[in-house]
Structures are given as C-alpha cells and as structure tokens.
Amino acid sequence: MVYAGLGIAAVLCAILAIRATRLLSAALWLAGVSALVSILLYELGARQVAVIELSVGAGLVTVLFVFAISIAGDDALGERTALPRWLAAGAVGALVILLVGMALPVDDATVEAAGGSVQAALWDQRALDVLIQIVLIFTGVLCLLGLLAETRPLAFAPPAARSIARQDALPAGHEQVEPVREPALEEVR
C-alpha cells in the first residue's frame, strides 16, 4: 500500500511538472518527483542509492535548474505544442500498455542470490562502470567549462580580429602605435 501511494504521488508530481507553464514550478515539481522516488528506493531497501538520489537528484540538479532558469529567464511559450496532444497521449498510452503487457505478470521465480554489498558489487563486478563514471564526470566538467566560457579571439583568427582584440586589452590611456605602412607599388612608380 505504501509503495502504491508513493508511486502514484511520484507520477502525479511528474505530470504536474510536465503540465506546469512556468519553468520554476516545473523544476520544483521535478524535485518532488526525485524526493518521492528516493523514499520509494529507501523502502525497497536500496539505502545508498536513495541517499545519492536525494542529494543529487533533489538537491544538486534542482539548484542547477534554478540557476539556469535565473540566467535564461522563465518565459512561457504559450499553449502551442510540438505535437498535437491527442497524438502524443495516444503514442505514450500505446507504449505504456505494450510495456505493461510484456512485463506483467511477473514470475516470482528468483535467481540465485549474488550476495555481497554495494561496495563489492561496484568495485569487483562493475569496475569498468566506475571508470566510465569518472570519465563521464570529467567530460561533464570540461563540457560545462567550454560551454560557459567567455568568447575569446582564437589563435588562428585573422590579423584584423587579433589587433582589435589587442586594442581592447590595452589599459586606458595607452594608445596602440599604428604599424608602419609599406608604400604600395603604384606609389613607388
């Protein structure tokens, strides 16, 4: 009963996040989904994942969303949608019915218990996953730095652009000296 209540509440929060017109409201409903999912995971016995989901999903990601919305603005885009609502609802309904029909009823037969803790499973069985996670984190940080960096003139930019950039970089009161212009061929003649 507890599981059903938590699952229904999480789905309701997800629907409200999708239907919210303001982005900030949608981000807060998403935080609610994360919190309810983490409670669900805790009740299932997945304590470590529940704590990580609560701190990362409901905490860090929500802060990132609020930060991005404060920069990009909370502009509503009106009622027009990318696809007609009836078409999207029909496609999603068909997909969910197919998934439920394929997965249910679940066979109660269980495989042999693997045993061990999360640490053992993570470091012994899924060591490659840990390596990929580390690479993913570094990739994310590098992409974030590259995307949010201020635009600078490139090293291979044309000379005119570089001289403009140097002129901008000079402190106030320091005029740049004009380069000596070589006489053109017609002037020499």
């Binding site: 995971l41 299932l44 016995g45 997945a46 470590q48 994942v49 990580i52 989901e53 990362v56 999903g57 860090l60 990601v61 269980t110 495989v111 042999e112 218990a113 693997a114 045993g115 061990g116 803790s117 999360v118 053992a120 499973a121 993570l122 069985q125 899924r126 996953d129 990929i132 996670q133 993913l136 984190i137 994310g140």
Partner: peptide, 18 residues
C-alpha cells in the same frame, strides 16, 4: 535477490543522468 548489483547500476545511471 541481486539488490547490490541493481544499486550499482542505478548509481551509474544517476551519474550519467546528472
């Protein structure tokens, strides 16, 4: 009965998702 394996996979999913 492989909750530890499920949790380790879930951690990978959380990192990728973030």
């Amino acid at each position: 009965d492989q909750l530890a394996l499920g949790q380790s996979l879930a951690m990978t999913v959380i990192v990728a998702d973030t």
